[in-house]
């Protein structure tokens, strides 16, 4: 697996997509920093961006990479390598190169502006972490969907739909059900529902950094316990990890059974 990972990472890290993706973050972050010259404001802006862009790009990139390397994958399958190693290697290559683009694109400008040692270091670390996790989650999901669907257009469509679902539709449904069920206690429901969606979960990690003042306005005890203590962070980290592990297990399961 490490061998496959190594070469697909080599391949991807030199692709113009990776360059343009990393370059975009670099330019974007630099210009934000240059315009506002305020680390905390830029961290906040990027926190909004990371929730939208990292999942979207990871989804598209994951699907694209899978379909584009289809024939090469067949060649690899004829090599004396375990199947799961091939797909996990490729997946990790994609997730790794996406994360590298993100970390370098955002990290270099911030490092230049001296984020390390500033009071924003914690928030910045959270920002980087969320970007990396979302890249891993959504490229895994994309790989899984692509593996399941031979038809490229269908696979691409489903992957985008999955992104759309987690990024927008899910929240819409949640808001709708919350506002329709106001007479019931909704604390646990809304918490559990947000934990079930990796984007929401990452968002809550960010809210815990940015909007603690507002979150502390909740009346419910469960909420306050969850959000106000280390418990929230702990659960969020654990579930995010599950969100990576789940699709990866899916990739393994499909990869073992699939005909090429």
């Amino acid at each position: 697996m490490l061998k496959i990972l190594k070469y697909s990472f080599y391949d991807l890290i030199r692709s113009r997509w990776t360059y343009s993706y990393g370059g975009f973050y670099l330019l974007f972050t630099l210009s934000l920093l240059w315009l506002s010259n305020d680390l905390s404001k830029v961290v906040i802006s990027l926190m909004n961006v990371v929730l939208l862009l990292c999942p979207l790009i990871a989804t598209m990139f994951g699907v694209m990479y899978y379909y584009n390397s289809r024939e090469f994958t067949e060649l690899l399958l004829a090599q004396p390598v375990r199947r799961t190693s091939i797909f996990l290697g490729q997946y990790l290559g994609v997730a790794g190169s996406l994360s590298a683009s993100w970390i370098i694109g955002v990290g270099v400008p911030f490092a230049l502006y001296g984020v390390f040692g500033s009071e924003q270091a914690g928030n910045f670390a959270m920002l980087l972490f969320v970007g990396v996790v979302l890249s891993f989650v959504f490229s895994a999901m994309a790989f899984f969907i692509a593996l399941k669907n031979e038809n490229r257009i269908k696979g691409f469509g489903l992957a985008i739909l999955a992104w759309l679902f987690f990024a927008v539709i899910y929240d819409g449904l949640l808001l709708l059900s919350l506002s329709m069920l106001t007479e019931y206690p909704l604390e646990k429901f809304s918490l559990i529902a947000s934990v079930m969606n990796p984007i929401d979960l990452s968002r809550i990690l960010i809210l815990l950094k940015l909007d603690v003042s507002a979150l502390m306005g909740f009346t419910g005890a469960v909420f306050r316990k969850f959000l106000g203590t280390g418990l929230g962070m702990g659960v969020a980290f654990a579930v995010l990890l599950l969100w990576v592990v789940g699709p990866v297990m899916g990739i393994r399961r499909v990869a073992v059974k699939k005909d090429f």
Binding site: M47, L175, S194, I206, L210
Partner: peptide, 8 residues
């Protein structure tokens, strides 16, 4: 409770 959707 919909506050959990802040910034979405």
């Amino acid at each position: 409770e919909s506050l959990v959707l802040l910034r979405s």
